[in-house]
Write a protein that binds this DNA or RNA. Structure first.
Length: 300
DNA sequence: CGCCAGGGGAGCT
DNA sequence: AGCTCCCCTGGC
């Protein structure tokens, strides 16, 4: 059990931001996050966070995963004071983080994301995890009420079974259409071929992780089904290349409306991706009329 | 049934 | 860079 006070960190916002498809608010203020073969429950009320894991796991994995050593107020403060739109977006998503997710998982997730909506992307990923991911077990407090108290004895805990994200080896032997059963549609062959590329060594995640943004993107673009936008999403959400600026339909729309002369890349050199994420989240969730209920947003 | 949109991509010019 | 065509599912 790890207790922290964290500034500019909102699991609710990250959850809705579309960079992570295996994260949900299970109960009020209680989040469940799956990452690779891990799973964690986190309770958050404002700045107060309670990670249901040991100090060791927090230090060696989750702290880095959520980019918690990085001070995002530095990025936010860089916004041009005359750019009212960007400042609105930043204020709306002030708890945003760019996660450091698993490379293989992000390749598959964003291959699936193309011509697809977020609800269905989540379902597709849940399907392939359930069918091809290794079964895992963790222990969590048995009820939301109890989760609000500190619990150390394991008898009071309850086991949770879940499925890890499938390894490339679990998918490389499938026929190209096999994942249509998981609702992937024509994207099935992209995922199967990507798995083969990894298993044959043609695409080496370790090596790509060590590359610069340019080189990594170049390698990613070699994968069948990976184009500009998907490559940039992977660079941003797995490799933490904060200069990557994925141009999806929402962002294109925002650019056309608010940055007719192009996004000021000079000004935000090196962290355009962070600004992109504030804008994306604002376009996705900030436009409709919402009622705020704690960390939850309800459509009016 | 048709139509279209959902965080595109490949393969051309 | 811009165009066409391709691809699949879900909602109306």
């Amino acid at each position: 059990m790890v207790e922290k006070e964290i500034e500019n960190f909102s699991l609710a916002q990250i959850c809705r931001s579309g960079q992570c498809f295996r994260m949900e608010e299970t109960e009020d203020d209680l989040f469940t996050i799956y990452a690779g073969d891990r799973c964690i429950k986190i309770w958050q009320n404002g700045k107060s966070c309670r990670f249901y894991c040991g100090e060791e796991e927090y230090d060696e994995f989750w702290k880095d995963y959520f980019d918690l050593d990085n001070d995002y107020s530095v990025y936010m403060a860089q916004a041009n004071p005359n750019d009212a739109y960007l400042n609105r977006a930043i204020a709306f998503g002030s708890g945003m983080r760019i996660l450091k997710q698993d490379l293989w998982e992000m390749i598959v997730s964003f291959l699936i994301s193309q011509q697809n909506n977020i609800v269905r992307i989540r379902r597709c990923i849940a399907n392939i995890c359930e069918k091809y991911g290794e079964e895992k077990v963790i222990w969590v407090p048995q009820s939301p009420e109890k989760s609000r108290q500190l619990i150390s004895s394991q008898e009071e805990n309850r086991e949770i079974r879940y499925h890890a994200f499938p390894a490339p080896e679990a998918l490389c032997g499938l026929s190209e259409d096999a994942l249509k059963e998981c609702n992937l549609g024509y994207r099935s062959k992209y995922v199967v071929r990507a798995a083969r590329s990894v298993v044959t060594g043609e695409f080496d995640p370790e090596a790509v992780s060590a590359m610069s943004y340019r080189k990594a993107k170049e390698e990613l673009l070699k994968l069948f089904g990976v184009g500009e936008k998907v490559a940039d999403c992977i660079c941003l959400f797995a490799l933490h290349h904060l200069q990557a600026f994925p141009m999806d339909t929402h962002i294109k729309q925002a650019m056309a409306e608010h940055y007719k002369r192009g996004f000021p890349n000079r000004r935000y050199r090196g962290f355009q991706g962070v600004m992109q994420q504030y804008i994306f989240y604002y376009e996705l969730c900030g436009k409709k009329e919402y009622i705020c209920e704690g960390t939850k947003l309800k459509e009016k």
